[in-house]
Design a protein around this nucleic acid. Structure first.
Lengths: 135, 135
DNA sequence: TATTAATCTATTAAAACGATAGGAATATTA
DNA sequence: TAATATTCCTATCGTTTTAATAGATTAATA
């Protein structure tokens, strides 16, 4: 299952990408518009900022804004930051690889073989789409 | 993340599919061979039996055995039984569809659009592979 | 200085996960 | 028929993750 964190984060990014300009938008406005718990959204936007997707401004007239062009924001990076590894098992993960300690032979493991194909197919989707495709 | 239930279940199915004949194999043997907690594996094999993948026999010489040819067992059905919906959000699920109550317009929702593509790509992999591909 | 809005830290409630325990039911063998 | 082997069933438990909430702090603006 996709976590609500990812779901909300993606919706927020899309909302920001749909703005005419890159002026700050308040958390409250995004939360209201997208039916998201404001406090929860706060923490999500924070991690998006810390990972280089968003800029922020405090005080009156403050808020969050996209720091890059939507067409520069690949779904791969969005998913990795919000949801974590794209692979469903660590032994087929590109960015978070870990061997299974219970599995003597990766190449012979059915789980490994299947999940490798699934990872590749998901990766193809994420790589081929940016935020711009969803505004 | 793939659940251990699915991981173990798929390994067990593969182990059974690799048998020369379709004689019953004991839980203990599968557990030992695949490094799986026997008690946990018990419950997994039970659900696989209840869902028409396996047959079982009690008492001495008993165990579990495949009830169909490995080439007849699609990964779609294995995944749905063990892991649940293939879609990452209910609003793009074929077999477990549910609308999001927070989302006024599915067709306009970025999460919906992205996850629809991801589901299709995963589905393509699962549909095109059977247990026979992993023995 | 007052107000606004992001930032940070901590806590909590509920759900899911992975595993374990113990006995009941059933089939085989002697 | 008795003993043994094995699946079957139910219940429980501890841990982790998830989603959300609360409250105090910091920074920018007017």
């Amino acid at each position: 299952m996709l976590s609500k964190k990812t779901k909300y984060g993606l919706k927020a990014l899309t909302y920001l990408a749909a703005q005419k300009d890159r002026e700050p938008v308040q958390i409250a406005e995004i939360a209201r518009h997208e039916n998201i718990s404001q406090k929860f959204l706060e923490s999500i936007l924070l991690t998006l900022r810390k990972n280089g997707f968003l800029g922020s401004k405090k005080g009156k007239g403050g808020g969050y804004y996209l720091i890059k062009d939507p067409s520069e924001i690949r779904m791969t990076s969005v998913m990795r930051v919000l949801e974590g590894p794209i692979a469903m098992v660590p032994c087929v993960s590109l960015n978070f690889y870990e061997p299974c300690e219970d599995c003597p032979d990766e190449a012979a493991c059915s789980v490994h073989k299947l999940m490798l194909m699934v990872r590749d197919s998901a990766l193809a989707v994420y790589r081929n789409h940016t935020l711009a495709d969803f505004v």
